[in-house]
Simulated assay, not measured.
Amino acid sequence: MKSGGKDIPAEKALDHVFGYAVGLDMTRRDLQGEAKKAGRPWEVGKAFEYAAPCSEIVPASEIGHPSKGKVWLKVNDTLKQEGDLNQLIWKVPEMISYLSGLFVLQAGDLIYSGTPAGVGPVKRGDALVGGVDGIGELRVRVV
């Protein structure tokens, strides 16, 4: 986000976007499962060190606001996830508007979205390469 706010209307939401990047929204299923069993919040499964690697951000002033383009992830050179931005259930303006109703958004905030089918476990040593056509790629090794 280049700027934030509270209760941002969807029709003004793109005015707040700095740019776009490729990110991986990782989950520690072991911690998430333990929290579920104990009836506790699952956030610990998402809020751990290196949980959300992100590529360089490409300014919207350079690429606009993409609404289509392949989204993909390979694990050890095997395609595991593939979709398109046009398949997002919530479009970027809707996400910003909704989230700004729950939280005050601020400049520098990142919003992750767009997980195609095929989510699965990774293990130490796996090489992950993900991308969004027109935005870029991200390469990560699980340690």
Rank of each mutant, 00 (worst) to 15 (best):
K2W: 07
G118S: 08
A35N: 13
L24F: 14
R141W: 09
L102R: 10
A35D: 11
R141S: 08
V143R: 13
A52D: 15
G33V: 01
K46T: 02
L24Q: 02
Y20P: 02
A51G: 15
G130L: 01
G114F: 00
I96D: 11
L128A: 07
G130S: 08
L105Q: 01
G131T: 04
V17M: 11
V129I: 14
L24S: 03
I111K: 03
P121C: 05
G4M: 07
H65W: 06
G64H: 06
G131N: 05
P121V: 07
L79D: 07
Y20M: 04
K68E: 14
G83I: 01
A21K: 03
I135E: 11
A107F: 06
T27F: 11
V122F: 01
M26R: 09
P66D: 09
K6H: 06
W90T: 03
D126N: 12
V119L: 07
A38Y: 12
G23Q: 10
V22I: 12
I57F: 05
G45M: 12
V17I: 14
E34C: 03
G39L: 04
Y50L: 15
A107Q: 09
G39M: 05
G69A: 08
F103I: 04
H65L: 04
K91C: 02
R28L: 06
D133P: 03
V75I: 14
N86D: 15
W90N: 00
V140Q: 06
A35M: 03
M26N: 14
L14V: 08
G45C: 14
P41N: 05
Q32P: 01
F103K: 03
